[in-house]
């Protein structure tokens, strides 16, 4: 099976910031992404859990984008402008995708 090199960008961010991040991604031309709920976790800013939350303030979400390597810098610039001062993690990993024209 033919596979193609791509970049997988995973952004864990505070739930109230989700809309701002996805809007910034759209503006940067990144129209494909997946938003996943985060069950819980811990980090330098403390612990969070999805359980029992009645508001979104205590929660986090994961926004995952798969893109062509040449579009990575544009995405990271757009994402960084939103997440720079907020709690969260941004990571980039190499991956392989089928159907390269979709990315």
């Amino acid at each position: 099976m033919q596979t193609h090199a791509a970049k997988r960008v995973e952004i864990i961010i505070e739930a109230p910031m989700e809309r701002r991040l996805t809007e910034a991604l759209h503006k940067a031309g990144v129209t494909g992404y997946t938003v996943l709920p985060v069950l819980g976790g811990t980090g330098r800013s403390g612990t969070w859990s999805r359980e029992g939350q009645v508001g979104r303030a205590g929660g986090m979400v994961a926004v995952i984008c798969l893109i062509r390597p040449d579009r990575l810098d544009g995405l990271l610039d757009a994402a960084f402008a939103v997440v720079e001062r907020h709690i969260g993690v941004v990571s980039v990993t190499d991956c392989q995708v089928l159907r390269a024209e979709r990315f």
């Binding site: 505070e14 109230p16 910031m17 701002r20 800013s45 403390g46 009645v54 508001g55 979104r56 303030a57 205590g58 001062r85 907020h86 709690i87």
Partner: peptide, 21 residues
């Protein structure tokens, strides 16, 4: 502990959420 924490997360990201929550 619902409306204000969410607003503070957006408008005052440098504030420590552990304290106010």
């Amino acid at each position: 502990y619902i409306a204000v924490p969410a607003a503070m997360r957006v408008a005052l990201p440098q504030a420590n959420p552990s304290i106010y929550l």
